[in-house]
Design a protein around this nucleic acid. Structure first.
Lengths: 371, 371
DNA sequence: CCGTATTTGTTCGTATGTATT
DNA sequence: CAATACATACGAACAAATACG
């Protein structure tokens, strides 16, 4: 089977068929257009007329074209209608139990109503995997893609694949983050900059003077939350101290934040609060603080982000930002359905920013004028 | 057009095609039979081999026959779908963040290695949804199904759909549970009976005398865990008291266990331990006990099941049974791949029972001879 | 309306490659 | 290894429908 697939691409009729299909999908051959005659194709591609006919017959069976005796072969109008797989691909970075399930649940809820199914792909936050899966999906029968970009901070080296999606008229929607060069594309995400601003301002308003930060370096969300953190500090006239910020990468996410905090403590850095990238990181930071003999929130305040299950336990509640997970998934699904049904121009809001909301727990304390 | 139809019957390839089709429909060529070779047909009907191939290709496209390289052309069993979609459907009951994500992650990990994709379907534990999705999936391009049955305890009314899957030679694997009449089908599940037995025996061994139980009524897992609970009691020579068992249904899962415990307490039922269907229920039970002024584990011991994130928090750790979520998904994926590649008979173990493992927390106390 | 060129539809012949038995 | 059977490819011829001057 695999042999066949590899060889098929070398076959003359198969190559010709693919070539013609691409021209049709790219719109170089428009609906209703007359294709070159069999003899002309045979001359142009240097193959026999039989081979041309073989290629055309595949496309005819697939519904791309139809032949009229004595007139010619034409591009079928049914090209768009033949896309009724009712499948939407969802490409995520992690299948962890952190926030992903509810986003998927939201997407599934909205899609199931319209009879659509989810094809799930998980990149493990690897860019090469993302590229591989996009190529794979281009071969599959899908109507649209909802994608959470992998390492969204790094420049996208496979822009050509997204271009191909547009050529093939397959709509796509970014969730959670977006590559910097594609900020005009359809997307649904939190206003992370504002979220970072809000939670930092909350700490400032509660009298904190030395606010450290722990941010993820390799996605756009980390960048934006950090941006908000800086904005809040500057607005309050506080100095932004890069030494108080710990940047970690996904690959060593289990090691870095813990050791980062430890290092700050060893250096006797002044700290009365730590703004964390998310709840997961906040838990790691708190473990480090605890191991160092510090109490939260008495000695130091800690904030999270996402309002995950980690933020809520019996006694302890993390001050965090609500991540409207299901809602986000639902909105992304509805956006892609709009793009599918109405076409690109019919959609008013192609970029949806969700306003963050702060949830006050007991992981922070109010330091009014003392310390 | 009408002219064409009349003339088509005079065409050699069309006549041959009709002739062969009639033989298949009349049963002169049985399912699975080998057709005469192209050369033989070409000789018998006095037409060129090209003409034979044209006739055969029509029948092949229509699904009546299929050709195998080097072997011959055969009469198709049923509408033979293109078997290279590389899609496996995964039908789950809930997309909750409880244990589902890790199972999916396990499935995805194993499938992605072989280049397969997941098509996700979520029944919300509704049998009618399950039936609807199975019909939908029969229309889709899938190679196999991994299914967590909805309300596995209730008799399955859409057995015909599973029969259809077998007719179409689409393999399926049950996970988590299985309908009672289909216990010989491929499946991967925990030995829930043994799990229920182990955790109950643990309580007995630690001196508990009055062990209540909370079980889910509408899935086979609840039945099995309850069976193990009863086995452990009987083995220890303890009376099984149905009044100490609370059965709840999925629909009112948020209400029942809490109120059930409250009712038992109001009736002043003697209780020194509660065996719970899973961690989620254990948390609800513990909330009820707490609201009633009882302390865990000092006044009463509580056990869970699944070893979910709920079982582990800073101070409190639930005594529970490990649910090897990723491993289960991985095994299910590998089983379906085996069924796909090797055929049904090649697989040794079609039924995989995972041995449970007990994790001791601090939600139980040892009552040696007092009380 | 006719004739011619173009284009697809059908059929035959031939050759080589590749998988299976 | 040889025989068998399907897969691909090329060349040629004629038929039938259509377009156009």
């Amino acid at each position: 089977m695999t042999n066949q697939n590899i060889q098929q691409k070398q076959l003359k009729y198969y190559g010709l068929m693919e070539d013609l299909k691409e021209q049709i999908l790219k719109g170089e051959i428009q609906v209703g257009d007359k294709l070159p005659s069999e003899n002309e194709l045979s001359a142009r591609y240097q193959v026999s007329r039989q081979t041309v006919r073989k290629a055309l017959s595949i496309l005819e069976n697939a519904g791309y074209i139809y032949a009229e005796h004595g007139r010619g072969t034409f591009c079928s109008e049914l090209v768009h209608k033949s896309r009724n797989s009712k499948n939407i691909a969802v490409v995520t970075t992690y299948l962890s139990d952190y926030i992903f399930p509810r986003v998927i649940a939201g997407i599934d809820g909205a899609l199931a109503k319209e009879g659509y199914s989810i094809i799930l792909k998980n990149t493990n936050n690897s860019r090469s995997q993302e590229a591989k899966y996009l190529e794979e999906l281009l071969q599959k029968d899908i109507e649209g893609i909802i994608i959470e970009p992998s390492k969204s901070q790094i420049y996208c080296r496979h822009m050509n694949l997204y271009q191909k999606l547009e050529d093939y008229k397959i709509p796509y929607v970014f969730i959670q983050g977006c590559f910097s060069k594609m900020s005009d594309k359809p997307q649904v995400l939190m206003d992370d900059c504002r979220g970072g601003y809000m939670i930092t301002k909350y700490l400032i308003d509660n009298g904190h003077k030395n606010i450290a930060g722990v941010f993820k370096a390799d996605d756009i969300q980390g960048q934006n939350r950090h941006k908000g953190y800086v904005m809040a500090l500057q607005e309050a006239g506080m100095l932004y101290d890069p030494d108080k910020v710990i940047w970690f990468h996904t690959e060593d996410r289990k090691v870095h934040p813990y050791h980062g905090i430890m290092r700050l403590l060893e250096q006797k850095t002044q700290m009365d609060a730590v703004v964390c990238y998310n709840d997961q990181i906040a838990m790691q930071v708190m473990r480090a603080l605890k191991d160092a003999g510090l109490k939260v929130p008495e000695d130091i305040s800690v904030t999270g982000y996402d309002n995950s299950y980690m933020a809520i336990s019996d006694e302890f509640r993390l001050t965090t930002i609500v991540h409207p997970q299901e809602k986000l998934g639902e909105m992304a699904a509805e956006l892609i359905l709009d793009l599918l049904h109405g076409g690109e121009d019919s959609v008013r809001e192609k970029k949806i920013l969700i306003e963050p909301e702060l949830v006050e727990g007991n992981s922070c304390i109010c330091r009014t004028e003392n310390k």
